[in-house]
Amino acid sequence: MEIIYIAILFFSFLAGETKSLKFSILSLVPHSIFIVIVVFIIGYVNNIPSLYLIAVLDLVVRAILMPILLFKCLKNRVETETKPSISHPLSIALSIVLLSIGYHFVEMFKSSYIPHVISSFSSGLTLFLYGFYLFISKRDILKMMISFFIIENGIHFLIISMIPRMPKFIEVLITFNFVVAIIFLVYISLRLNEIFVREEIEKLKKSSSQRS
């Protein structure tokens, strides 16, 4: 299990730190697939069949629907990230520190204070913290959406590890909320891209008419 958690964190690092937005979104696919695997294993090991439903829902929403929706945002825009507020090398270094040391400390905290929670707790809390770091350090709209996605995945893991027997309709409703929020974000992002393209065309027209 430990390796799967590390893989999840590694792919979230790739999603957060690669400059190419296409690659960032693609990194979310294995990230989400590993989440699905973890949820399925937790359901099997702890004998909670209702988690299978959540695993299927995660597969549809997090591994398939979300990347598709995020890919839509690439329409009418450059596929490289807008310059973040923290320089790229520093951000990579900070991410590595946050993910590795953060995970290690959360794991220590878990085993000393809350040993009864399911093992995905440390990964969930680290994802939440890392997503929040990305959220405040990135300025690109799509990267902010990716960080929101990572934070949400962290919360999802925390729910599963702390209250695995929570009524599943609540978890389904929380996922539904998340999907609706992403749909609205994609709508806004697409409209903004259209406006930027229109502005660029107008600028080009102006400069060409000045030259002629």
């Binding site: 929670v117 939440f128 929040f132 959220f135 902010m144 959406m145 929101f148 934070i151 949400e152 919360i155 925390l158 729910i159 702390m162 209250i163 929570m166 929380i174 929020a181 609205f184 974000l185 806004i188």
Partner: peptide, 20 residues
């Protein structure tokens, strides 16, 4: 939408902690 959604996730974390 992004600020409120991320902010309000903190309160969701609080609810999870209370439930636990």
């Amino acid at each position: 939408i992004i600020l409120i959604n991320v902010g309000i996730l903190f309160s969701l974390l609080g609810i999870i902690l209370l439930f636990y």
